[in-house]
Amino acid sequence: MKFVIVLLAVIALASARPEVEIIKSESDVQPDHYSFDMETSDGTSRHEEGVVKDADSEHPALVVHGSYTYKDEHDGKEYSVSYVADEYGFQPTGEHIPKLPAIEH
């Protein structure tokens, strides 16, 4: 009996979630850089660009700049995050993210 109740609850939950579709997807991939943009029907979007820094040196590094936006399904707020990922690590910024100490380059 417990199995039937759990099964019915899972089916009800799965059927209540709306389908999310990709409404935009673009990308450009080259040997020394890439970029992509995507958006989904639930309002989520993401953009990212990456470039190889010092490609001809002994220590090439990938430098990534990007952003994403999503709507929280619990509180209904829209959140946006911008970021850089490089030799200093992943560095996100957004109104809801605590400020980190500045990294001196």
Rank of each mutant, 00 (worst) to 15 (best):
I103K: 14
V6Y: 01
E48Y: 11
Y34S: 06
H47S: 15
E78L: 02
E19D: 09
V51R: 14
E21N: 15
L13N: 04
Y34R: 06
I23K: 07
Y79H: 15
H33Y: 14
E48W: 08
I22A: 11
Y79C: 09
S41T: 06
V64P: 09
I23P: 09
D54A: 13
D56R: 06
Y88L: 04
H33L: 03
H105T: 00
Q91G: 07
L13G: 12
S67W: 06
I23E: 03
H33T: 01
A85G: 09
D86Q: 06
V20A: 08
F90M: 01
S82H: 10
S41Y: 10
E39V: 05
S27W: 05
A16E: 02
I97N: 02
F3W: 06
K99R: 07
D56H: 07
H65E: 05
A102N: 04
I5W: 06
K71P: 01
D86N: 14
I23M: 04
H33Q: 14
K24V: 11
V81D: 12
K77T: 02
V4D: 11
T40E: 12
D54W: 13
G89N: 06
A14K: 05
P60Q: 09
Y70Q: 02
V64R: 15
Q30L: 10
Q91D: 07
S82A: 15
A9Y: 03
Y88E: 01
S57Q: 03
I103A: 11
M38N: 08
E19T: 14
P60M: 13
K53N: 12
I97Q: 03
H105C: 10
I5V: 12
D54I: 13
T93K: 12
K99M: 13
K77I: 00
E73H: 10
K99Y: 01
S80D: 08
S82P: 00
I11R: 00
E19K: 15
S57N: 05
G94H: 05
M1S: 11
G76V: 02
